[in-house]
Design a protein around this nucleic acid. Sequence first.
DNA 1: CTTCAATTTCAGAAATTTCTGAAATGAAGA
DNA 2: TCTTCATTTCAGAAATTTCTGAAATTGAAG
Lengths: 194, 194
Amino acid sequence: MKLSALQQEFVLHFGEMGSRWGINRTVGQIYALLFLSDRPLNAEEITDRLGFSRSNVSMGLKELQSWNLVRLQHLPDDRRDYFATPEDLWEIVRILVQERKKREIDPTLTKLRALEMDRPANAGDEHAHQRIAELRELIELLTGWYDDMNDLETERLVQLLKLGSKIQSFVKKTGRIVALPGQGAKASAHTARE
Amino acid sequence: MKLSALQQEFVLHFGEMGSRWGINRTVGQIYALLFLSDRPLNAEEITDRLGFSRSNVSMGLKELQSWNLVRLQHLPDDRRDYFATPEDLWEIVRILVQERKKREIDPTLTKLRALEMDRPANAGDEHAHQRIAELRELIELLTGWYDDMNDLETERLVQLLKLGSKIQSFVKKTGRIVALPGQGAKASAHTARE
DNA sequence: CTTCAATTTCAGAAATTTCTGAAATGAAGA
DNA sequence: TCTTCATTTCAGAAATTTCTGAAATTGAAG
C-alpha cells in the first residue's frame, strides 16, 4: 500500500467501518482514498495504492457510483476514467442521507402502507394493525421533516443545526409558532399537515 | 410459521430488510414478531412461530438486547424469560439513533480526532489533513445537534418535527435568533459553541 | 475493419457470516 | 444435595458474500 501514514490509517479505518455502514471493506477503502485525494484517480492508481485486484476495484467503483458517492470525470488527452468525491462535504451528507433513506426506509414505508390497505389480511389482528399504523405515521413524520430540511440551502441548514434546541424557545407548548411582526411563517408542503 | 397473514408479511419484510439495517434475517424477524405482539413472548414461543432453531433464537435475542431493542421481563410463577419491545415508538427511535451513532459514528469521530493530533503522521499531506479536519467538524456539528435534540421531551421534539422548515422564519440571515420579549433563548451545551 | 488500451463480466475460490444440534451451564424447587 | 427445566455456548455445517484471474466487451484511433 503506497500511502502516507495519515492516508493509510484513514483508509484502513474506513475499510473496517465499512461493514457497519452497509458496504464492504474494499468499497470503504476506495471511498476513503478518493475522499482524501487532491485530484481524481483512475482505477489503475487505486489498484496500485490499495493492492487488491483490478476487477475488485472496478466492482467497488460501480457500487460507489450506484450510491452517487463518486463522480466520473475525464482528463484531456487521456481516455481512462477518473473518479472523485464531491468537494463539498454537505453535498456528501445530503447524498448519504438520501441514499440510505431510499434503501433502508422507503421500501418499509411502502410495505407498511400496503399492509394497512390490505383489509382481509389484517382482520382479527387489531393490535398488530394498530402498531403498524403507528409506525407508518411516525416514519411519515420523520421523512416529511427530512424532505423539508433537505429543501433548505446549506447555509440555512447549518444555522439551524447550530441553534440546536435553542430553537424551541419559539414554539409554544400548544405547538403554535410565536408570531413575529411583519415576518409571518410560510407554510411548507410538509408542515401544512395536521 | 404460525402467524396471521398480516404478521407473516411484516415479519418476512423485516427479515429481508435486516441486511440493509445491519442485522441479519433472524434478528429482524424476531424483532418484528415482538414488535407486533400484544404481550411479551418467551424464546420457545418465538422458536415455534418463526421456525428456526432454539439456539439461533437465543443468539438473536442476545443481539437485540445488546442493541437495547428488546426488554427482558418475567411473569409470575413462570421462570422463563419473556421479551418485549418498548410500547412507545419514540423510545424505540431514540434507542435506534443512539445505538447507530455509537456503532457507526463515534468510532470514526474518535479516529479522526486522533489522526488530527498525530502531527508526525500527517506532516507533508496538507490536503488530506484539511479534509479530515473538515469531516471532523461536520460530524461534531451533527452529533452536537443530535445531543441537543435528544434532550428534548418527546412532545417538544414532535412539535419541532411538525414545524419542519417553517422554523427558519425565526433565524435571521446572520444566524442570529430573533429575540422575543420576556422569553430569552437559553444557551445549551451544544449551541454555546461558535 | 483492425488494433489496442481500458473496463466489465463472470465462474469459481476464498473468506466470512449465519445457523444448528449437542453439550455445558445455571438456577429454582424438592 | 439432587432433579429438572431454561438458557447459553460452541464446533462444525450451510449459506452467503467477497474477491480474483481470465475472458469478453467496449470504444477510440488508425
